[in-house]
Amino acid sequence: MQLDLDLAGRTVLVVGGAASARLAVARFVQAGAAVSITATDAGCRSVERPKHLAGWRDVVDGMDLVVLVDADAEEERMIRAVAGRRTWILSEAPASAEPIGTVTLIGGGPGDDGLLTLAARDALARADIIYVDRLAPQQRLREFAPGAEIVDVGKTPGHHAIPQHEIERRMVASALEGRTVARLKGGDPYVFGRGGEEVAACRAAGVPVTVIPGVTSAIAVPAAAGIPVTYREVSRMFTVVSGHAPLDDAQLAHLAGLGGTIVVLMGVSNLPHLTAGLARFGMPADMPLAIIERGTQLSQRTTVTTVSDATEVSTRLRVSSPAVIVVGEVVRLMHHGEEADRISRDVIALAGE
């Protein structure tokens, strides 16, 4: 599509069948347009294909762009006759008649490829092309997916070399070419992984999509460090928070008063804001806090501190992402034996151990 037009929020009419126009529909949906099509079951608003000039006038009126995919000569004549000066008209070749492929979103777990599920391994083995996130397990990917094309679409904090909408566009385009697509993501696709957005993009384009859950780092990484997120008589609940953006005062106040365990993903850069806010809203200064870097991997490192000291300690030790932050009394339970007696006699006794 060669068109110098910002399509975000624009109205687009695609003249074609659901199969023949699927590529055009996918592109314009991904560009943010409000798409209508003269077909049913195309993943967007459908309109009846008119037979006469007056009918085309009603359908075309108010459209910013009309895309002719499989319109015949008479339909094109009528459309051009009723289109206003503000309406662009573009012709595109129909999509291939090859069957549509599929997309599978795969939760890869927190990093250790031994935590991939059997379903994930099976999906990788069937894939023609795999779009891989930075934090997804990749050590044995060539072994798990022999012959597949592997495309790195990973993002680093503050730097998205390939924007999310472009990742979605590529996935959809590959599936519309008839390929079996796997999208390998770290953790679980639906836990701060933008999996819902990717599923929506596939459905809008009429691409079959399934989701394979993954072992979420919110539970697995604390466990790898010896920290249970719940423990009888110590923590009856845990709250998982995205630390990607600073929390507002209402959210901080809620967290500080909720009790239980707080697990923060992607929160290293906002750790000073988080701990200062929790303290401001009443969390005890000596509340234990653990930072687990590169959880489940050989280079895993766990730093145990408190809410009041977390910023100074993390700066001095040069804590970096990826890391999971755990706040709560359960952090004391990672210690055992004499060290447990020395650090947390009261908590262990309260737990009935």
Score class of each variant (00 low, 15 high):
231 Y>R: 08
257 G>P: 01
301 R>I: 11
202 C>Y: 03
277 G>W: 08
229 V>S: 06
206 G>H: 04
201 A>M: 07
180 T>L: 00
180 T>I: 13
256 A>I: 10
266 M>T: 12
234 V>C: 04
268 V>K: 08
168 E>L: 00
302 T>M: 01
264 V>C: 01
255 L>V: 04
234 V>A: 02
277 G>Y: 09
195 G>E: 06
208 P>M: 08
229 V>A: 03
294 R>K: 14
172 V>K: 13
227 I>M: 02
286 D>Y: 09
276 A>C: 00
276 A>I: 12
226 G>C: 05
305 T>N: 13
234 V>L: 07
257 G>C: 08
250 A>M: 09
162 I>P: 00
292 I>R: 06
252 L>N: 10
268 V>T: 08
299 S>E: 15
278 L>K: 11
169 R>K: 10
233 E>L: 06
166 E>V: 14
219 I>G: 01
274 L>F: 07
162 I>D: 11
302 T>C: 01
241 V>G: 02
220 A>W: 03
212 I>H: 02
168 E>Q: 15
241 V>E: 05
254 H>Q: 15
207 V>S: 06
193 G>F: 05
214 G>Q: 08
215 V>K: 02
205 A>D: 09
276 A>Y: 01
184 L>H: 06
291 I>Q: 08
254 H>G: 10
174 S>M: 12
169 R>D: 12
197 E>G: 07
177 E>Y: 05
293 E>W: 02
275 T>F: 00
283 M>N: 11
206 G>N: 05
291 I>H: 06
